[in-house]
């Protein structure tokens, strides 16, 4: 699971108000190289939740992103875009879990696939 996916997932349990971002429990992280697409990254920059991405990448062992939302002028820097690219698209949570920040409910991640199925009493 890429961190771009993590950036849009939130706890879907009924009644949960602050279900985002899901806390990541890491068992195994893998990296898969993909082509660098600066235009895509510039477009994504305004759509993603920066803090969630920076925190998630740090937990995954990549601490190169600034913790606070950077000014949009950083998008002119190739070095910044490369780091953003790596965190957003190349880091994968292969094994571990996503944890609801409000209830502590764990959603397991196996072979890179998060299981977000809810139990009957959660819908």
């Amino acid at each position: 699971m890429r961190l771009l996916t993590h950036n849009m997932l939130s706890s879907n349990i009924k009644g949960v108000i602050n279900g985002f971002p899901l806390r990541i429990e890491v068992e195994k992280v893998i990296e898969k190289q993909v082509d660098f697409n600066p235009d895509f990254l510039k477009n994504m920059f305004s759509k993603i939740d920066w803090k969630a991405l920076a925190d998630a990448s740090k937990i995954m062992g990549y601490a190169e992103l600034p913790e606070e939302v950077p000014d949009a002028s950083v998008l002119d820097s190739d070095e910044f875009l490369q780091k953003f690219h790596h965190a957003l698209l190349e880091l994968h949570l292969e094994e571990g879990a996503l944890v609801c920040p409000e209830t502590g409910r764990r959603f397991p991640v196996n072979k890179g696939i998060p299981n977000m199925l809810l139990h009957e009493d959660e819908v």
């Binding site: 699971m1 997932l9 696939i113 977000m116 199925l117």
Partner: peptide
């Protein structure tokens, strides 16, 4: 992602 479509809660 394994999920029921009507329980998706994407931000």
């Amino acid at each position: 992602i394994q999920c029921q479509i009507n329980n998706l809660n994407w931000r």
